[in-house]
Design a binder for these strands. Sequence first.
RNA 1: GCGCCUGUAGCUCAGUCGGAUAGAGCGUCGGCCUCCGAAGCCGAAGGUCGCAGGUUCGAGUCCUGCCGGGCGCACCA
Length: 617
Amino acid sequence: MRIAAVAASLSCTPLVSAHNGGLTRARQLWPMKHQIAQDLRQALDHLQNQGQLPAEADVAVQVERGRGEEHGDFATNTAMRLAKPAKRSPRDIAFEIINALPANPYVERVEVAGPGFINFFLTDDAALAAVAAVWQQREAYGRCNAGDGRDVLIEFVSANPTGPLHVGHGRGAAFGSALASVLAAAGFSVHREYYVNDVGRQTDILTASVFVRYRQQLGAAIAFPSNGYQGDYIRRIAETLAGEEGEAYSLDDAALTGELPPDEAAGGDPDRHVDALVAATRRELGEARFGELRQRALTWILDDIADDLSSFGVSFDQWFSERSLVDSGTVAHMLERLQAAGHLYEADGATWFRATVLGDDKDRVVRRSDGVTTYFASDIAYHVDKLERGPSQAIDVFGADHHGYMARVRAAVEAFGYGRDRLEFRLVQFAVLYRDGEKVPMSTRSGRFVTLRELREEVGNDAARFFYVMRRPEQHLDFDLDLAKSESADNPVYYVQYAHARICSVMAQLADKGWSHDTEAGLAALQRLTADHETALATEIGRYPEVIENAALAHEPHQLANYLRDLANAFHTYYNAYPFIVDDTELRDARLSLIRAARQVLRNGLDILGVTAPERM
RNA sequence: GCGCCUGUAGCUCAGUCGGAUAGAGCGUCGGCCUCCGAAGCCGAAGGUCGCAGGUUCGAGUCCUGCCGGGCGCACCA
């Protein structure tokens, strides 16, 4: 049973008035949540100075949005948290806090409820203040300085440049990009980076694959290795190469294939076969030309990936080459530092990193017995390099199938003296596509995977980006292609975009009537908006800055996607309940000011998610 | 076997630093267009929050164990 008591009824001053005074005050008190937290803090300080609360009773003030109407607009559990240290009943403390609260014109009344919650009920003006704030700040509305300009280095996608991006990479791209944008909106200085694995066996196999296709293109009868890269894109690279270079890379095919161990089809080991093919290609072509060919293949694929991502609205500040780390000697240098610090040892002809003492399951090889440093060695160098560039935080976004690297990379970073919290891993689970209710079969192994480009062409960039970030990244994503394509209410991205288009449509209707929106008059008349639907929409608009801040600090862009649906819902509900283009000029201007503020917030939010806000659909 | 992620309505998922009566959408059922775009709105039904313990004023949320699902455990990248 809940006994509510009205303990304080503060005077209520209309704040959004016709003149600029109202707007100025709106800015000063914005956002409400912080203002209430500040009021609470002030009340607590007062009570502590008066000796009514023990000075050592120091609890964090938590303010959250009220759940239901009867819980008010904001609520805090501060009194309950103070009960134990103060050794008093939470309700008593709550009443004292209420009486110590400074006057706040936006607060209509404050109640103590339940076990000791303090509920804040705001005036309608408080909700409408958000509308004024939107008109003042426009595309900047919702941005905040929570990050205080701190540098965040976010690495995402980083798919191997051995083929086109598939739908799994797409999710990492959409998530990483949205996270970067929301961090930027919250005042962090964001650096977006793609780590390019352009060294190693896979790139060699890629090179050999291109080479064989190239020879085939020119008529040579060489069998394609079963473990080569099978995709058509390899043929296209080979065609381009043959067209541009003719026979420039030709050699004696018999010398190339003469002594190769049998491939899978012939009952052999496909890995041994392809490795031997790589070795033979390298030998016959010579290291320089082999490297040149490899670079062309990598460049071709990276250009394709960059083009794909760019079309998807995803961009990077830096494409960081692994090869550059190896060639510059950075990898070797980092290994020396590890050696000096006693983290390495020799065994079986290889050099090992003692990862087990730093929390990993097993020790890891950093230099193979043939003298070549491993991918992990590069990864150590890369991550240490990232941290040494001095960001307050580095974030790695990668596919859940790579989670095994977390422990070893953490161990490496710690070996260099960096705390665990300096590097955060965000695992993105795979997206499983569904078409006609059936799972779309995918397997990288067989080369039968759906590419990001195919997905974008099928459902469009907007649906793809929105669907990708709708869920928490750790959650498996069931991507319903039919839903993403459907132009119906079921489709959340259309739902949100439709709200935007509808508002544009209203403005077009207004123009058709030969009327215009007097924005000054509209803002001056906001107090005319007293309907529940109007307060609800304004309240939703006012929540946006909190959503941005929360989404940024929690690294959860899906909160923004969910919010945009709520905002669209508040608008659609309002739309169905009231006409906007009414004869009462003042009321009309006020309503248009409200919905145009909603449109601005929809734009701001969609922009962060990389989704367009169409004017017509 | 070990490790990481995960289990909330028939389905897909939210659930803020541990707070009040666990929320959306879809699906089902029932309403709303002479009216700014019905690509919309309103209402109803629908829950042992995987199971069992523990921590405390209070647990979907934190801890332990078990069960189920996904992924990973190379001198590959």
